[in-house]
Computed example of a mutant assay.
Amino acid sequence: MAVLAWLLIPLFAAVGAAIWADWASRDRISGDVAELAGYARFRDAMEQPAPGTDALRP
């Protein structure tokens, strides 16, 4: 019985590695598009002057 337990440990490790490899290689393109759109909105917001700062300009 102990031999069976020692043989199951690498089997479970291989199954876990296969699941992790499948998860790590998933398609993440949709997440990148959303991130790039958010960054573009952030960049546009940073280019606009803040309200009420016109009096501070010379």
Rank of each mutant, 00 (worst) to 15 (best):
M1G: 07
A2H: 05
A2S: 11
V3G: 13
V3I: 11
A5K: 12
A5Y: 03
A5W: 04
A5L: 10
W6C: 07
L7D: 09
L7E: 09
L8D: 00
L8R: 06
I9E: 02
I9K: 11
P10S: 01
L11P: 06
A13F: 00
A14I: 02
A14D: 03
A14Q: 01
A14N: 06
V15A: 14
A17F: 09
A17E: 07
A18E: 11
I19L: 11
I19A: 11
I19N: 05
I19G: 07
I19T: 10
I19W: 06
W20M: 13
W20V: 12
A21I: 15
A21K: 15
A21V: 11
A21T: 12
A24S: 13
A24K: 10
S25H: 13
R26I: 01
R26L: 01
R26Y: 01
I29F: 03
S30D: 15
S30I: 04
G31I: 09
G31R: 13
D32H: 13
V33H: 01
A34P: 08
E35H: 07
L36Q: 03
A37I: 14
G38P: 00
G38D: 04
Y39P: 00
A40V: 14
A40N: 09
R41H: 09
R41Y: 12
R41M: 10
R41D: 12
R41K: 15
F42G: 13
R43Y: 08
R43T: 07
D44N: 13
A45E: 07
A45S: 13
M46F: 03
E47R: 09
E47N: 07
E47T: 09
Q48Y: 00
P49N: 02
P49G: 09
P49M: 08
A50V: 05
A50M: 03
A50R: 10
A50T: 12
P51V: 06
G52Y: 00
G52E: 01
G52S: 00
T53N: 08
D54R: 13
D54I: 07
L56P: 00
P58Q: 02
